[in-house]
Amino acid sequence: MNFAQLLFPDFSLILIGYLLCRLTALNRKVWEQVDSLVYYFLFPTLLFRSIVTSPLDLGATSGLIGAGMSMAVVAIALSYSLPHWPWLGKHLDVRLHAASAQVGFRFNSFIALALVEKVVGPQGLQLIAVLIGFCVPLFNTGAVWPMARHAQRGFARELMRNPLIIGTTCGLASNLLGLQIPPWLDPTVNRIGQASLALGLMAAGAGMQLGSLASAKALGVAVLSLKHFVLPLVALGMSRVFALDATQTLVLLMFSAVPTASSCYVLAARMGYNGAYVAGLVTLSTLLGMLSLPFALGVLGSLGGG
């Protein structure tokens, strides 16, 4: 499978946003409004629809849910622990770490949804929907907590206001209750969600300042290493602990290795942190996905029986 070809659209949109912001009249003031539109409306709509429209069989996927959530907890704990590592902790800015820790465990749901059907087939969409529904609230809680703490904002208040958590939990609740989007409304909802993908990636590119990455090299290497090397290993371990079958193991490995979420940048910027640095990490993560996906699905997949 050509992962470079799969990830090129995301990377090219980041590059387009970067060039538009710097070479045209569409400057940062314009893209700040795009950030808000994506974060508060477009992307939550995408998450809601992706969960509502995918059948959830909780009985058959209880092991996958346990493995996914356990992997999420380990990933969040590792990202939080970076300031306490020998040598590394002395070279980290705690506020920058608060904004960047999320890069080490969050994932790009669009790439996951696009990839799983090619790797596993239609059954994969059901399995990835389960992981998205249960792990996105957990990942977003992990993303918000350090930023709310360092910004001295109420953690519970920030969670209740987080549109990504609201969209995901509403989608999960609707699915479990058997509620569906009316057929006449679904095309509109689908187009709103699709718009978030292009605009979110372009906004990340517009907010990126490549020079900012040099200001905290150790932090960048640490969170990206967790995301693209350590997390797939954790996923393989959890697949064995929860005795997942070959298909579920492959989906979990893919879930662990896709690039980080483009909304990492939007969340950091919306909460008053260094969005430019986080946008740079999002860009590098998109590129590193070309290495971590073959590593997870090829090398580790063979070890896990996938």
Rank of each mutant, 00 (worst) to 15 (best):
V221W: 14
L233G: 13
L297T: 14
L6W: 11
L231Y: 07
G124Q: 01
I128T: 03
Q102I: 06
L244H: 00
F107P: 00
Q123W: 09
F295E: 10
A173L: 12
L47C: 10
L46M: 14
M254C: 03
G66E: 08
G171S: 02
S79K: 02
L288D: 11
G306Y: 09
M1T: 06
G200D: 11
Q248F: 05
G207W: 02
R157I: 02
W31N: 06
S196W: 06
E117M: 10
L177T: 09
R191N: 13
L131Q: 04
H84C: 11
A198I: 06
R191Q: 15
W145E: 11
G121H: 09
R240K: 14
D186C: 03
L176Y: 05
M238G: 02
V119E: 14
G237D: 02
I132A: 05
V234T: 07
A257S: 11
H150L: 15
H91V: 13
A143I: 07
L113Y: 12
C21M: 11
R240P: 07
V299Y: 14
L253H: 00
E158V: 03
R28V: 05
A72D: 10
A195F: 07
S256W: 00
L82R: 08
V258H: 01
F105C: 06
D245T: 08
Y273N: 08
R22A: 04
G207Y: 08
L6A: 13
L125V: 02
L300E: 09
Q152S: 12
D186A: 13
L125K: 01
L252Y: 00
A77L: 12
L78E: 09
K118E: 14
V223G: 03
M238L: 04
R240L: 13
Y18L: 15
R106H: 09
A204D: 02
S225K: 10
A276Q: 01
A214Q: 04
L281A: 10
M271R: 11
A218E: 14
A148Q: 00
M202P: 09
A235E: 02
G306N: 06
E32D: 14
A296F: 07
G298R: 10
T53E: 14
L179Y: 15
W85I: 10
C170F: 15
L127F: 05
R270K: 12
S174A: 15
Q194W: 14
V116C: 00
V189M: 15
L293E: 01
G68T: 03
G104R: 03
G154Y: 02
Q209I: 02
T260L: 06
N175S: 09
Y273H: 15
V30F: 13
D10F: 13
L197K: 02
M290I: 14
A222V: 06
V241R: 08
